[in-house]
Design a binder for these strands. Structure first.
Length: 463
DNA sequence: TACTTCGGCGCC
DNA sequence: AAAGGGCGCCGAAGTA
């Protein structure tokens, strides 16, 4: 059970919902010709890949195992073929005891068939969830995703039919395929504004950890680079973009979400091994770690104590330092927040919402941060929509992705829109909520007329 | 045919 | 002491 307790909290949701209705009504323009072509091409690519596997031994075993009911899309059947018929060792199982057949488990087998199977899976996901998913919801060249405020336990928003909040972006070749379908209206540009590091910033408003606050305040500091250096035991000036990515997405964020050293060690290790990553000076990171006395990952078994000279042991120490020293105040806040929740059965967020119910430790600690961060976005969204109406702007907000706002803006209004949005999202919001104790920053990206969402490039905001 | 569960995977 | 926060959508497989 959760409620908007204060009048401001109620107003935030009430107005937010009206804004989201406007966004749904606006819709985003879709290049339907492109979509049709991309669907055809992707279908042919998938068919060709399957054809190239017809002679493979795995295909033959698959046929003798399943006969008429063979389904070469089925991961469950693949698991049966590989692990029970062909004798490959299954190291990963799901909670129900079935062999795990996710990308990570399968790619570690290094079987040519499997490599191609995974490629087909990626294309199939792109085709069914995205290309077809977008096409079947497009009406007269526009897509109108639904945006809700009542479905997420943390008070974040959600999106469906289709989900506008999980359009591929991480893998370039998939992003290329999907995002080209999203285009600006005639005479418009797509403008995307996102709060940089809003959840980390809002977390500081709860725990006031001085070291984390310093990272947020001082742009010359770089937490992700620093933690990559510590995890991979190198100087900060040896950290490449990819290694920084590992520090950020395989250590810092998982740690903030409540993960622990065993998973982090595994993922950090896999990151450098499967990517064959090097330091800036060209040395392979695995070779470098060897020089530092670390030759292997370690058992990564929760029941075993990590052994000396393993990467697992090292990351355990990094973790201990992370919470015991570096972000000690944050760690103390987590304990306090958790025990207060256990005592009271709920909490109140900085944005004026009361949340009651049964929560696990990690959920209780993350929910207020995630929800309050989204409320920053939601407030900005309504203010921006009001600015658009008041100024008779031709800008149309077309979507929201948790910490970002996507709008379709007349080309000659772009600078006005950017200036107004920056004022609202940073200065006005900080004035509205006095508890915001860190600087608010936004980044802007733009895709011009004739381009697509896939072409968005960073753009400076003039004050 | 309709529905549920599971595993998997896309995003923040 | 426990051990990854939040979603929506897909196909496969089983059940009603």
């Amino acid at each position: 059970m959760s409620r908007a307790t204060t009048p401001e909290a109620y107003k935030l949701l009430h107005e937010g919902l009206q804004t989201l209705s406007r966004i749904e009504s606006n819709g985003i323009r879709i290049d339907t010709d492109y979509l049709e072509g991309a669907i055809g091409k992707t279908k042919r690519r998938i068919a060709n890949l399957y054809r190239s596997l017809e002679e493979d031994e795995v295909t033959q075993v698959w046929k003798t195992t399943f006969g008429r009911s063979a389904n070469f899309n089925s991961r469950e059947q693949l698991g049966e073929v590989l692990f029970n018929r062909m004798g490959h060792a299954c190291v990963n199982r799901t909670p129900t005891g079935r062999p795990r057949t996710d990308e990570e488990s399968l790619s570690s087998l290094s079987i040519p068939y499997v490599k191609r199977f995974l490629k087909i899976s990626k294309l199939q996901k792109a085709l069914s969830t995205y290309l077809y998913g977008i096409q079947k919801e497009t009406v007269d060249g526009f897509l109108h995703p639904i945006f809700s405020l009542h479905l997420v336990s943390t008070f974040r928003g959600s999106s469906e039919r289709p989900n506008f909040q999980n359009i591929p972006i991480r893998l370039e070749w998939i992003a290329d395929l999907i995002r080209q379908a999203f285009i600006p209206r005639v005479g418009h540009a797509l403008v995307e504004l996102d709060y940089s590091g809003i959840e980390v910033g809002i977390s500081c408003c709860y725990h006031h950890d001085p070291r984390l606050t310093a990272y947020v305040e001082d742009l010359s500091l770089d937490m992700h680079r620093d933690m990559a250096a510590e995890c991979y035991m190198m100087d900060t000036d040896q950290v490449t973009k990819q290694l920084r990515y590992g520090g950020k997405n395989k250590f810092i964020f998982p740690q903030f979400y409540g993960d622990y050293y065993i998973n982090c060690a595994r993922n950090l290790w896999d990151h450098i091994v499967s990517g064959k990553l090097s330091m800036k000076n060209g040395t392979l990171v695995t070779d470098h770690l060897k020089e530092q006395g670390i030759t292997r990952l370690g058992a990564c078994d929760p029941k075993q104590k990590p052994k000396a000279r393993t990467f697992e042991k090292h990351i355990q120490e990094v973790e201990a330092n992370f919470w015991g020293s570096r972000f000690k105040v944050y760690a103390e806040w987590k304990e306090k927040w958790w025990s207060e929740y256990q005592k009271n059965g709920g909490w109140q967020t900085l944005t004026g919402f009361i949340e009651n119910g049964v929560f696990k430790r990690n959920e209780a600690i993350n929910a207020p941060i995630q929800g309050s961060a989204f409320h920053c976005l939601l407030w900005s969204l309504t203010r921006l929509q009001k600015w658009i109406e008041r100024n008779r702007s031709g800008a149309k907000i077309v979507g929201q992705i948790h910490d970002s706002i996507v709008a379709d803006v007349p080309v000659d209004e772009v600078q006005d829109y950017l200036a107004a949005a920056k004022k609202i999202m940073t200065r006005d919001l900080a004035r509205k909520w006095k508890w915001i104790s860190v600087p608010l920053r936004i980044d802007a990206e733009i895709a011009y007329e004739g381009q697509s969402w896939n072409d968005k490039k960073e753009i400076k905001i003039e004050n």
